[in-house]
Amino acid sequence: MANTIDLFCWPKKDDLQSFSPHCLAVMAYSQFSKASVRVHKCARLQQYTASLPVAYNNGKMIEGMESVFTFMRSQGWNADYGLSEKQQADTLAFEALVKDKLEPAILHLQFVNAENFSNCVRGYYANACSFPWNFYIPGRLQKRAQLTLSALQPTSNRKSDLPDSSLQKKVITEARHCLSLLSKFLHDKEFLFGDSPRTMDAVLYGYLAFLLKSNLPNNVLCAHIRGCPNLNRFVCHVDDQFMKSVPKASTTDASVIIPRLSLSDDRKAQLKVLASIGIGVTAMLAYALLSGIISITLEDDPDADYVTFSVDNRCDDTQHEETTDNSQQ
């Protein structure tokens, strides 16, 4: 067995241990397999990559849900031990089904639905990240989701990198069908393959718990899940029996275990973000000056040892002139 794994995840929100289905799945798997882990909220390096969850152990970093599962198995923490060949094949089939049919709908609800992104998702990721990442990460995650969803559209309909409105109905319909199939397979069992939780149970928990507890303003799949009593029971059972015991790291541990080698890359990324912000501010000021919105007047007093300048805002004058013209008409 390996030493304790440091697991970096997006932080909790409301009743969710994390606001990420993949992070929730990895947390659940660590409990199912009895892995030795410490869970940290996101750190600087992972904020830049935006690829949480990330596992770190003995100088090695593993990014992404599937990769973390594979690493834990390689270290002896295997929740799928004892599955028959048919059950292993079913696991692969269900993982593919969820990734192809359920994950696109969740991405759409989070990052394409304007109400959800503006009122909930953007604010969460901005609060979870430190400056200047709070300006960068929400947009980066949204762009990544948009590119993923646009790839699902037929090439003939792909006019840009943005998913069109017709895609929403398609992904939501397929997600409902996927949830119904999973509910039918679960039936009245405690877990998908009997009395013991497996990898697919961890994946299913991550998606279901997110949809049920994320409190998105516009969440059409939540009602569908609530209409499947066995799926609700499944989430409650995992919460009560496993998720309450997820080990938390102290606030001082996170800064200690981040690899020194990666911090230089993180610093370079931070400088790039700051440079982008600086370029944007400079461009806005240049536009304001060239368009006459703002004017700068130098006042040279021959009796003084310095030169003063004043800044005039033309917007107020323009609005005043328009108001005067309208009143005269």
Rank of each mutant, 00 (worst) to 15 (best):
V171F: 02
D164L: 05
F117T: 02
G139S: 11
Q146K: 15
I279N: 11
L208W: 02
T199K: 09
D239Q: 13
K189H: 11
L109C: 07
Q168I: 09
S150R: 08
S36T: 12
T155D: 08
L141E: 04
G278M: 10
T199N: 07
L102I: 14
S74N: 11
K159N: 02
K12T: 01
D14G: 09
V112G: 01
G139Y: 15
W77V: 02
C178G: 03
A105E: 01
V220N: 03
C236Y: 10
Q319R: 15
G64E: 04
K101G: 00
K272E: 12
L45I: 12
D80Y: 02
W77M: 07
G280R: 13
N57W: 10
M243I: 09
S165C: 10
D300A: 10
L274P: 00
Y205L: 10
K86V: 14
C315W: 14
S262G: 14
A304Y: 06
R260E: 14
C315K: 14
F210G: 01
Q153N: 03
D90I: 10
N116I: 04
A286W: 12
A114G: 08
F131K: 07
M72L: 15
R233S: 15
A275I: 05
D14F: 03
P104M: 05
R176T: 07
S196H: 14
Q31K: 13
E115N: 11
F8P: 00
Y306Q: 10
N313Y: 15
R267K: 11
S160Y: 05
R158W: 05
N119V: 00
K60M: 11
L167R: 00
Y81E: 15
I294S: 01
R73P: 01
H237N: 12
V121Y: 02
D325H: 10
R73M: 11
S67P: 00
D312I: 13
F193Q: 02
V121G: 00
P247T: 06
L102G: 05
N232L: 14
M61E: 09
F117V: 03
V37P: 03
F32A: 06
T282N: 05
S291D: 12
F185R: 12
S156P: 00
L83V: 04
Q75D: 01
H237D: 07
L109K: 04
A55Y: 00
T91I: 05
A223G: 09
F111G: 00
F69P: 01
I257E: 07
M72S: 06
L208D: 02
S30E: 03
Y287E: 04
Q241K: 15
K169Q: 13
G194W: 10
T155R: 09
S276T: 14
F32S: 05
F135E: 11
S36L: 11
D301F: 08
S262C: 13
R140A: 10
I296W: 02
K12G: 15
K189I: 03
H320M: 12
T252A: 11
